[in-house]
Design a protein around this nucleic acid. Structure first.
Lengths: 225, 225
DNA sequence: ATTTCAACTTACAATCCTTGTAAGGCTGGC
DNA sequence: GCCAGCCTTACAAGGATTGTAAGTTGAAAT
């Protein structure tokens, strides 16, 4: 059965949620320490995340955005703050649904069920800014346009997505694409970078990938908050 | 701007909704006669549909299912019947969101905005039963599994999807795939059918496409209501 | 201004995937 | 058993993708 991870700092509600999901047959867990929240979530390999916005330390918005850039599970925001602004922000960052507390368990379950069914792990989609990348086919979506990249270029895109907007070294790219330990030829990487950039330009994305001389490449994702 | 079509039999609410959307800059229209609802909607080429469940004649559920099999725009159900069962049914049929009347305009707008942004026309997805087909890449999704079909097989799938569960003649398939008027070779169609079936079997979908001797092929989509 | 090294660019050939052709085998209904 | 309709397999042409080779360009430092 699907695995759900609950991110909620109120202990009572957290356990209530886990119980609700468990009773419905889901494998539900939660995170109780919020030091390395994001990586803890990734490590748990969830099929869906229920995320509170008010957490000690980092904001739920940040976590949502971070996760969406490197994983494809749906994120359901569950918050006490009933602001339309919050809802718009969350949905803009890629959140898949937005419910306010208190929330009837059946309503929550219905939404979770739908997300798992419709937008679940099957669609390997990751997101950076206003770009979406399908990891199965390397279809890149931007606004009304899309393009299907060949595998090598798609993998480059993937690693750049996952680290956006940080710099990715050529070494990291090469080992991600070809898996090899040592880094024999650096020319082939550049060739593929040219090809990728050409494909992106055809889409209208001209300066998406920037070169950091001596360090590597960086993807500056588009308009977001 | 995106085009929204409102399907609602209550005249007052219908005009209210159209006005709400228009003021936000959408191109909103509605349908006032419900004789050929489904084809009217398709003919309007919407980017999103707001659909009431209680309509004179056919049920909203039927319309939702029919549309999802041959178009890729998101469908938002807006209904007065606040039953959890309805919500589950609608979402199971592929509806993308579910709101109950009365509904604050801002809430509705926020949801519409999200659907257009996240799951809009960009992703060319059509649905038949529990299967999903991406028309850009011909990625076929079934539960936890997926496969990427080559173009020819993907097109076969598409036409079978759009007519499911009715029979599609070989002639129709051939002219859909190759466009030609006359139907020269029928062997190539069978070859591709074998390949498609082999690919489906690898996914676990063994008897998905049935042969109707002398008539054509038929796609019997999986478990649904 | 010159040097130097990283980054960029283009052309070409090997490889793999997809497609159509060909030829024969199977099957259900009469 | 016969025939039309359907299925199956093997093969070759064509195209897309990938890596190789061999340069040219450009920016920082002297």
């Amino acid at each position: 059965m699907s695995k759900i991870v609950v991110i909620e700092d109120d202990r009572y509600l957290r356990e209530e949620l886990v119980k609700t999901f468990s009773e419905k047959g889901y494998s539900a867990t939660s995170i109780s320490s919020f030091n390395a929240t994001e990586s803890d979530i990734l490590a748990a390999e969830p099929d869906l995340v229920v995320l509170d916005l008010n957490l000690p330390g980092k904001s739920g918005f940040e976590i949502c955005k971070w996760l969406k850039a490197r994983a494809s599970f749906p994120i359901l925001i569950l918050t006490a703050r009933d602001t339309l602004g919050d809802e718009l922000t969350a949905l803009g960052l890629g959140a898949d649904d937005f419910l306010t507390k208190p929330c009837h368990p059946n309503r929550l379950l219905a939404r979770v069920e739908r997300l798992l069914q419709n937008y679940g792990k099957v669609r390997n989609l990751i997101q950076a800014g206003d770009l979406i990348l399908d990891l199965d086919t390397y279809k890149l979506i931007w606004g009304d346009y899309h393009i299907v990249l060949p595998e090598t270029e798609g993998k480059m895109m993937q690693l750049l997505f996952e680290n956006s907007p940080r710099v990715v070294s050529k070494k990291a790219l090469a080992s991600f694409i070809w898996g090899g330990e040592e880094f024999v030829d650096e020319n082939i990487l550049q060739v593929n970078m040219v090809r990728l950039r050409k494909n992106l330009a055809a889409l209208g994305l001209d300066n998406l990938i920037q070169t950091e001389r001596g360090q590597g490449y960086r993807l500056e994702a588009g308009n977001e908050s």
